[in-house]
């Protein structure tokens, strides 16, 4: 029987001291969706990077604006949408860093974006300068939950 879609909507104050609570909450939902520990760790880190970018760049260090998380779980994939109503940016200027250049020269930024793209199967950024940003990232569910047979 196909798994019914589940949606979770969460709202957190956009401050860096809430990142741990966000990670823990998303981890529990990922665990419930059937991911193994390695994949839960990947999802947790991707969400942390996306939310840390909101606090640092969209909210420029903090404030009272919220970070909105929508998590959609169906039989095929686990999707997280991180949304903010912060400064926004021109997505055409968003580039994944050249890691060889990053590692050999000075910091050029974008390490968090590189990590999100590496960890997740699908990543999409939508942003309007002055209005806010949505980061939509998904991980495919590959029937990872192993059943335990009691003997």
């Amino acid at each position: 029987m196909p798994r019914k879609q589940k949606k979770y909507r969460l709202k957190f104050p956009g401050q860096s001291d809430n990142l741990e609570i966000i990670r823990d909450t998303v981890s529990r939902i990922a665990e419930k969706a059937g991911f193994d520990e390695d994949n839960i760790n990947m999802i947790e880190l991707a969400v942390d990077e996306a939310c840390a970018n909101v606090v640092k760049h969209a909210f420029q260090g903090g404030g009272n604006k919220p970070i909105d998380l929508e998590i959609i779980v169906d039989e095929k994939k686990f999707t997280i949408v991180v949304s903010d109503r912060g400064t926004g940016f021109d997505v055409n200027k968003l580039k994944r860093p050249d890691m060889k250049e990053y590692l050999s020269k000075k910091r050029v930024g974008g390490l968090g974006i590189h990590i999100i793209h590496t960890l997740m199967d699908e990543v999409q950024f939508e942003s309007v300068p002055g209005k806010g940003t949505h980061v939509r990232m998904s991980k495919f569910i590959k029937n990872e939950k192993k059943s335990t047979v009691k003997t």
């Binding site: 760790n41 890691m99 590189h114």
Partner: peptide
């Protein structure tokens, strides 16, 4: 730990 090692590998930091 394996999850920390994975992050280093993913970022290419094991070379450094």
């Amino acid at each position: 730990k394996s999850n920390v090692q994975n992050v280093f590998e993913m970022a290419g930091f094991t070379m450094l």
